[in-house]
């Protein structure tokens, strides 16, 4: 009974970890978003599993049934799903813009380009007004 009683939560943990792993180990931004949705679903499962009562039925009142599952988690998760898709869409729109700006949706490429740009900017700034380094002052 002990093992069966906690099985749901363990699968929730496994799903959560898979989502977590995708988010931190993969570089592709779309894949990261898919990972986030998996992570999200695992939280949904956690809530819904807690709301379930053994031998109960769906919380739609009827004279034939006495025990109902807890409706509160259902409400919270129902709205969370729709909000989740809205925020995912926002993420996807950001991915599209990132691809237009950098020509890549791999995190690594984006970072390399950023570093490159920053160095170039710095070099350009130094080129216009000679940096007064210690070395220069000594030679003059």
């Amino acid at each position: 009974m002990n093992i069966i009683g906690l099985y749901n939560y363990w699968i929730v943990v496994v799903l959560m970890l898979i989502g977590f792993y995708i988010v931190i180990a993969h570089e592709n931004l779309i894949k990261k978003l898919v990972g986030l949705t998996i992570f999200q679903t695992s939280v949904f499962f956690l809530y819904i599993s807690m709301g379930k009562v053994a031998g109960a039925t769906a919380p739609i009142l009827d004279e034939n049934y006495q025990i109902y599952s807890n409706p509160l988690p259902h409400v919270l998760i129902l709205t969370a799903i729709v909000v989740g898709i809205a925020t995912t869409a926002l993420g996807l729109a950001l991915v599209v813009r990132i691809y237009e700006a950098y020509g890549s949706i791999e995190e690594n490429d984006i970072q390399v380009q950023d570093t490159h740009d920053r160095l170039e900017c710095q070099l350009e700034a130094y080129g216009r007004q000679k940096p007064p380094t210690l070395f220069d002052q000594e030679t003059n």
């Binding site: 599993s49 709301g51 009562v53 919380p59 599952s69 259902h74 129902l78 799903i81 989740g84 898709i85």
Partner: peptide
């Protein structure tokens, strides 16, 4: 898990 409304939402949204 008795969450019919949630299932409905997940099927149409997800």
């Amino acid at each position: 898990l008795d969450a019919v409304d949630v299932a409905f939402t997940e099927a149409s949204v997800g």
